[in-house]
Amino acid sequence: MNSTVLSVKNLSKHFGRLKAVDELSLFIEKGNIYGILGPNGSGKTTFLGLILDVINRTSGDYTWFNNGNDISNRKKIGAILETPNFYPYLSAQKNLEIIADIKEVDYSEIDEVLDIVDLSHRRQNSFRTYSLGMKQRLAIAAALLGSPEVLILDEPTNGLDPQGIAEIRNLILKVAKRGITIILASHLLDEVQKVCSHVSVLNKGKSIFNGRVHDVLNDSVQVELAGTDNDSIKLVLKNCEFVEKFEEENDIILVNLKDNTDSAQLSQILADSKIVITHISQRKKSLENYFLELLAEEK
């Protein structure tokens, strides 16, 4: 049972002549982990600012939970934009109490969210003493207060070390398992690929691609094969358990392999069957190539 969380229609924001967000439309359903991917300055944060009503739109429309842009929707949304914004002189506990006051949530939930992000032991320290990674985690804790239906994260791993990045990503996946819809803005392809189920690619404020990550951006290995006797090759492929599917195109057979296998294993099997091949080459279809292709097309 899918229901619409966010629907955006032709949303635009112009700063003078600059079209930061240009006629953007998208549709997010419950349970999606929706990636918004784009290079720096492509309008990701402006877009999030628009749908959170901190930036005034130039034109277009959006609606949350089919309930317009009413402030009451905000109780079901947890969001962080860019850097974590807290009162530096207040402790994590007090900062979260203010968030809880605004959301009209019981203070007892603060313990819960601090546990999730593993900051309970530092709750009484003032925010200014936190490291960047801790600030980022506190921001996620703040966004989680009030058990939101939607979580909006803007570059949550920006500026973190590899360990911090891994921690945040695991945290996102952990949260996603609870059935929360997540909107994740990022300029890191890898991140979107690892975390998201759907993606919208932005460039210069325009959406140049919308769709499921799995459909278009899977990075499974594809091998080109050709031999003196293609029919006997196909017979072998049919019986091979790590071949996902294959098809013939102009005397070249394109083989999709399952995860964790590569062309070496394939050629070994063919050799065992005493089949002579004249051509073998491995293609890797990654998000990165795809992303760069998309951006190149736009230029």
């Binding site: 402030i71 905000r74 109780k75 969001a79 962080i80 009162y87």
Partner: peptide
């Protein structure tokens, strides 16, 4: 501190 922005985002 950009907390006015965060306050509004949070629901004030």
């Amino acid at each position: 501190f950009r907390t006015v922005r965060q306050n509004i985002i949070t629901g004030l």
